[in-house]
Amino acid sequence: MKNEFKVISDLIEDNKKVLDVGCADGTLMQFLKENKNINVRGLEISKEKVQECIAKGLTVIEGNAEKDLKQFPDKSFDYVVLSQTLQAFLSPELVLDELLRVGKKAIVTIPNFGNWKVRLHLLFKGTMPITKSLPEQWHSTPNLHMCTIKDFVNFIKSKEIKMIKTLALNNNNVSNITNNNLGTKNLFADLGIFLIEK
């Protein structure tokens, strides 16, 4: 299981109710279910991935987060997880609002467009950056709204969303992001992981 999922799972206490939005093949869900006795549901747009989840005995609903989150009642989950997908929505702001409506807390992770490798790629090659966490060409990427860790922190602050925990993941090292080190983390982290609530 990738390190990101270990970090996410450490943020969630045992026996909670969790919705994994864009749960893919259910790797995180299965881990949460088996190791933390978590009552976990998934929402996934890909039919193939939904089938993989069913084969693992996971409860998954085929659907689109931008349309289908509205069917869940307010605060019906302890945590709603959204892993590296926010940038792929037509309207990330609306999805974020929905996550915080449906979940008492949300865990959102974003690939960091501010990472130095990304910056250098654009600066020296003059083409859209391709990295480990951004593997697709500009014309085939699902990412519509790339942002940096700094962008996301500013956005969260502007929306008066409470940041409970902000973590940077860099080469499997996890560290806290603070006001003092934001610039550095924004340069070196591959991934930002945010535990937020409204």
């Binding site: 039919k47 939904v50 069913i54 409860t59 609903i61 085929e62 069917q71 009642p73």
Partner: peptide, 18 residues
């Protein structure tokens, strides 16, 4: 039906088969 079940927090999965 899925929506009705989700709105009461029921344990429900759904798939549309091609």
């Amino acid at each position: 039906i899925v929506i009705a079940l989700n709105s009461i927090g029921a344990d429900v999965g759904f798939v549309e088969i091609v």
